[in-house]
Computed example of a mutant assay.
Amino acid sequence: QVADWISEKLVASGIVVVSGLAMGIDAQAHKTAADKGKTIAVLGTGIDQYYPRRNKALQDFIAHQGLLISEFPPGQTARTDHFPRRNRIISGISQAVVVVEAARKSGSLSTAIHALNEGREVGAVPGSVLLPEHQGCHWLIQQGAKLINTPQDILEWFSINPAQAPVSEERQYLDESLANNRLFASLSSEPRTIDDMVQLSGLEVAEVMEKVVLLELEGLVAAVPGGYIKVGRR
């Protein structure tokens, strides 16, 4: 919930969200940012690999709408030592790092420590003192990281007024009435291929491929054997 809240407010203010495409907070931050703004995913595998597999649709969407970065060659699968190396790139291309949740020993802390060493802004979201998954954030705050209560705490680092936020094309697309959405209207309970959707909607192939992934991320369509089907409003 916190990752979703922060990402939505940041991208609405024109900030790009960077993360590592892992399960949980990474994926949520990317999904919200990709839906409503811009995001960069730094991979711990080759750029043609999917890890974890559950994030395949999200990775494909970021490949079209955002940016994928990897220092590993195509074909390279995941290895444990790849992810600390990935984390230094996340901090290196970012102006600030915010840790939403972290145990005392976690990859998120390594990203934050890289950021501190590089002179970046670092913030951490506090949580219950009784839960180990928040102890890393509390340690960072003790070391001087800023306590993050709201997205506004982050926007202040960049002197950004949320009232001046631009509206992204992705947000405009999501706010369209589905009844007037040609691509969504071309789908049904029977599988439709990309070629079917191009023919029925009158849209270009690239636009169909881009928008069908966005609809899939929104839970409005599903990929099935033979193509895509309409699921309905989530």
Results as ranks from 00 to 15, higher is better:
residue 6 I to D: 01
residue 172 Q to V: 08
residue 105 K to D: 10
residue 69 I to M: 13
residue 130 L to E: 13
residue 61 F to I: 05
residue 81 D to P: 02
residue 193 T to A: 09
residue 234 R to A: 14
residue 71 E to V: 07
residue 127 G to P: 05
residue 33 A to T: 12
residue 81 D to T: 02
residue 188 S to G: 05
residue 24 G to P: 10
residue 164 Q to S: 05
residue 174 L to G: 06
residue 165 A to I: 06
residue 153 D to E: 06
residue 94 S to R: 07
residue 178 L to C: 15
residue 234 R to E: 04
residue 35 D to W: 07
residue 207 E to D: 02
residue 9 K to W: 04
residue 222 A to L: 00
residue 92 G to N: 13
residue 118 E to G: 11
residue 66 G to W: 10
residue 141 I to E: 14
residue 96 A to W: 06
residue 41 A to P: 02
residue 78 A to Y: 00
residue 172 Q to L: 14
residue 143 Q to E: 13
residue 2 V to Q: 05
residue 86 R to K: 14
residue 74 P to H: 11
residue 132 P to A: 06
residue 51 Y to F: 12
residue 185 A to N: 03
residue 55 N to I: 08
residue 161 N to G: 02
residue 7 S to D: 03
residue 174 L to S: 10
residue 24 G to F: 15
residue 220 L to K: 02
residue 5 W to E: 14
residue 113 I to D: 10
residue 181 N to M: 01
residue 228 Y to I: 09
residue 174 L to D: 05
residue 7 S to P: 02
residue 132 P to D: 14
residue 83 F to Y: 10
residue 52 P to C: 01
residue 91 S to E: 06
residue 108 S to T: 08
residue 121 E to L: 13
residue 123 G to D: 09
residue 215 L to W: 01
residue 152 Q to W: 03
residue 107 G to C: 04
residue 32 T to P: 01
residue 67 L to M: 04
residue 92 G to M: 11
residue 210 E to D: 06
residue 82 H to T: 03
residue 88 R to H: 06
residue 27 A to E: 05
residue 9 K to F: 10
residue 160 I to M: 12
residue 131 L to G: 01
residue 32 T to Y: 03
residue 218 E to D: 14
residue 29 A to C: 12
residue 38 K to E: 06
residue 129 V to H: 12
residue 9 K to V: 13
residue 105 K to M: 02
residue 37 G to F: 09
residue 104 R to D: 08
residue 165 A to R: 03
residue 142 Q to N: 11
residue 27 A to M: 04
residue 147 L to S: 12
residue 179 A to Y: 06
residue 37 G to Y: 03
residue 13 S to Y: 03
residue 126 P to C: 12
residue 27 A to V: 13
residue 181 N to I: 05
residue 139 W to C: 11
residue 143 Q to W: 11
residue 153 D to V: 07
residue 65 Q to T: 00
residue 177 S to N: 10
residue 185 A to M: 04
residue 110 S to Q: 15
residue 96 A to F: 15
residue 161 N to F: 08
residue 48 D to V: 15
residue 21 L to I: 08
residue 20 G to A: 07
residue 200 L to Y: 06
residue 84 P to K: 05
residue 145 A to S: 01
residue 45 T to H: 08
residue 38 K to T: 15
residue 85 R to T: 12
residue 24 G to M: 09
residue 220 L to P: 07
residue 76 Q to F: 07
residue 171 R to L: 02
residue 64 H to D: 01
residue 76 Q to T: 15
residue 137 C to D: 08
residue 114 H to C: 14
residue 173 Y to W: 13
residue 158 F to H: 12
residue 140 L to K: 00
residue 75 G to K: 07
residue 234 R to D: 09
residue 140 L to P: 11
residue 42 V to C: 09
residue 65 Q to R: 11
residue 58 L to S: 01
residue 27 A to F: 10
residue 70 S to K: 06
residue 143 Q to N: 09
residue 57 A to Y: 08
residue 169 E to P: 14
residue 107 G to R: 09
residue 44 G to Y: 00
residue 14 G to S: 04
residue 44 G to L: 00
residue 200 L to N: 02
residue 158 F to V: 03
residue 150 T to Y: 01
residue 94 S to Q: 07
residue 104 R to M: 01
residue 187 L to Q: 04
residue 25 I to F: 07
residue 177 S to Y: 05
residue 87 N to G: 12
residue 149 N to D: 07
residue 174 L to Y: 04
residue 182 R to L: 09
residue 28 Q to A: 03
residue 105 K to H: 00
